[in-house]
């Protein structure tokens, strides 16, 4: 009689193969997501540095004008593009190509009424499959540094 595999043997083999593929696929998805996250973190810190440079230049050319944009309780701006036009939080992810990021700034006067120390807190955030992730940085700006 010709010997062949039983149904149970075939099912066990198919089950093991399936487990192997599901494990391989989920590991891949995990690693790719981690790498994508790393990429977004690098880009986010680049956008963060970009705004820091811009702020330093702005406070250098006109400290008085710059300090008026700050308050002791903190004033929030949306900086998806480098201008002061958007006060308040960003309504959408509009920074980058493709636009995956949003960049916000909170300017707080540390020593009112002298206004010689302003804290700039920059947040760059992005949407990671429904989860909001962000990097942030605080810099202290003074008229003469």
């Amino acid at each position: 009689m010709k010997k062949s595999f039983s149904l149970i043997e075939v099912l066990v083999f198919a089950g093991i193969l399936q487990i192997f593929f599901i494990a391989a696929l989920s590991t891949t998805v995990f690693f790719v997501r981690n790498l994508k996250n790393e990429e977004y973190k690098i880009l986010a810190s680049y956008y963060l540095g970009d705004l820091s440079e811009w702020l330093r230049y702005n406070k250098d050319i006109d400290w008085n004008g710059f300090s008026k944009r700050s308050s002791p309780s903190g004033m929030r701006y949306c900086f998806n593009s480098l201008n002061w036009n958007n006060q308040g939080s960003c309504s959408s992810y509009g920074l980058g190509n493709p636009p995956l990021f949003k960049r916000e700034l909170v300017l707080t006067t540390i020593n009112p009424p002298d206004n010689t120390r302003i804290e700039a807190h920059i947040f760059v955030s992005w949407d990671d499959s429904g989860v909001d992730k962000s990097v942030n940085s605080k810099i202290i700006l003074t008229p003469l540094d």
Binding site: F21, A24, L25, T28, F31, V32, L35, K36, E38, E39, I42, L43, S45, Y46
Partner: peptide, 24 residues
């Protein structure tokens, strides 16, 4: 091909991150 596609995706993504990190 499935295994190679997975490895290729991982390696190319890793390369992109490494290069981005270098230029930054």
């Amino acid at each position: 091909p499935i295994i190679f596609a997975i490895v290729f995706t991982l390696v190319s993504q890793q390369m992109k991150v490494t290069r981005l990190s270098l230029i930054k």
